[in-house]
Amino acid sequence: MTPRYTDMQLDALRELANIASGTAATSLSQLLGRDVDLNVPKAFSLPLADAVDATGDPEEIVTGVALALEGDIEGVVLLLVKSQGAATLCGLLGVEPNTEVGDSAMGEVGNILGAAYLMALSSMTGLSLLPSTPFVVTDMLGSIVASLLAETVGHGDTALVLDSELDITGEPCAISFLLLPNAGGVNDLLAPLGLSEATA
């Protein structure tokens, strides 16, 4: 059976993402010494065929920082930054983009944001959620997102994506912050809120 999520479940997941990405936005703001705006997160549950397009233009070259989730649920946390945004971010951190040092700095940003996001999620749900070492890759958005969805969605056919956007105020830098839990992981997130029943 394919799990589909009710509006109430998606609302709850969106609220979790909202609070967690708010915490991440605060750490980004502290890291950079800049204001960071947070857009209202999106939570969508889509057939695999449509999930990639919902996260952005599949052909666009982006930098992705992926952290595998370890602990009570499996999945991936993924930051996506367009090339101009990555250059801006590296500039604010005083490193050259698309170099080993630049990638390392992007990985560190992913680490800090991912840890803040997961810590907030963890304290709301009581789950133990730890990020793995970050992997940084610059490629087409489609190649990055589809390869991760192949692992997280696997043999299921519905992808659940929680998508938050952080904007550095006054800079051309938007960071998409995606949580791609595997199918079982979604229920584990919902269970502490008393909303665990996946409906057909």
């Binding site: 999930a51 990639v52 087409m140 489609g142 190649s143 192949a150």
Partner: peptide
């Protein structure tokens, strides 16, 4: 992802953008 297109019309373009681990 997981889709298939077949065509026999000259000029038609079939595209799979952004293949990572997919084939």
């Amino acid at each position: 992802m997981g889709e298939l297109a077949v065509s026999n019309r000259v000029g038609d373009e079939l595209v799979a953008i952004g293949l990572g681990s997919c084939i």
